[in-house]
């Protein structure tokens, strides 16, 4: 009995005709895929060309300038770069241990019936709009930081310049904490996937050698999944670098470089969102677009890095299965 035809009625001619649609479909999807590349290049080109004015005027001094004064048209991006990078680092310092704890519990230790609901809730958190985090941050977290966390940090770690300064609640610390809360779902969800992908043979081998639960997690799971976990962290970092609204609402929006985490700061995406609409002079607009370009480059580097790590990890898995 001949296999039933999927397409067409009887004659193989018609079937072949439709099957040749496959190649058309393939070409069509290639065009769609190329569209991404074109889009990427266009964004880069547009950012670069529209920031020409600022690039020509300030040159590399734009990267090291610490003053941002639209009235006198002096523009330097360093406080924004500092704000973006530092707030993201604070976010990672807080978020990574917590996220790994969540991921380890969900993939290794939690009773089976808890795993799905808990994982679902973690992913749900990732879907909350950032302005909601921002509002919560402003009205709940900032007063808490001002009234409890900052006095506590000052009385215990106040000898460090990091924890001295005005106790407004609002500032770099608040920005870092809100970012941490926002990237925990990302990091823990991806890390959990990575840990689940670790072959059970690894765990069985470790148990067979007499390893405890902790030793198994540490040597068989974490070590095996470390590049993937690193990739998850970098994805979280990417989100932290680009996050705008929630940070604007709690970081204080002040372009300065201060050692103190209590002082207000400003981020790159924050200044673009805040000042772009009313920036009327050409050079001002150009400087804001150049900040966009710098942010684009920084995020790009982070993402490429993350992607490479994930690829490396995939290769390792394939190697392990063979």
């Amino acid at each position: 009995m001949p296999p039933p035809l999927l397409f067409g009625k009887k004659g193989s001619k018609r079937a072949r005709k439709i099957l040749s649609g496959d190649s058309i479909f393939k070409k069509l999807t290639i065009i769609f895929a190329l569209f991404i590349l074109v889009l990427f290049l266009l964004i880069f080109y547009e950012l670069y060309s529209r920031s020409q004015l600022s690039i020509n005027k300030f040159g590399l001094g734009f990267l090291t300038g610490v003053e941002w004064d639209p009235v006198h048209q002096v523009f330097g991006a360093l406080p924004f770069i500092y704000g973006t990078v530092t707030s993201s680092i604070i976010a990672l310092i807080i978020a990574v241990p917590i996220s790994l704890g969540i991921a380890i519990y969900l993939s290794e230790l939690a009773p089976r019936r808890f795993r799905s609901p808990l994982s679902f809730m973690v992913e749900l958190l990732a879907a909350v709009p950032s302005v909601v985090y921002g509002l919560w941050g402003l009205f709940v977290m900032v007063p808490w930081i001002r009234d409890y966390l900052q006095p506590f940090l000052e009385s215990t770690l106040g000898f460090l310049p990091l924890f001295q300064g005005p106790k407004f609640g609002i500032g770099m610390l608040a920005g870092g904490i809100i970012l941490a809360i926002m990237i925990i779902p990302t990091i823990s969800a991806v890390s959990r996937e990575v840990m689940l992908a670790v072959p059970d043979t690894q765990r069985e081998a470790a148990f067979a050698l007499g390893a405890t639960r902790w030793e198994t997690i540490r040597f068989a799971v974490l070590k095996y999944a470390r590049t993937g976990i690193f990739g998850a962290i970098l994805l979280g970092l990417g989100r932290a670098l680009g996050e705008t609204m929630a940070v604007i609402m709690v970081i204080g929006n002040r372009p300065q470089i201060s050692l103190s985490l209590f002082e207000p700061a400003y981020t790159m995406s924050g200044v673009i969102a805040s000042e772009y609409i009313e920036a009327t002079q050409e050079i001002y607009l150009s400087a804001l677009i150049e900040i966009g370009l710098l942010l684009f480059i920084i995020t790009l580097i982070m993402n490429v890095f993350a992607r490479l790590l994930v690829w490396r990890m995939m290769k390792m898995f394939r190697g392990a299965k063979e």
Partner: peptide, 8 residues
Amino acid sequence: VGIGKSVG
């Protein structure tokens, strides 16, 4: 400082 829609 001066006058502006955004100032330092």
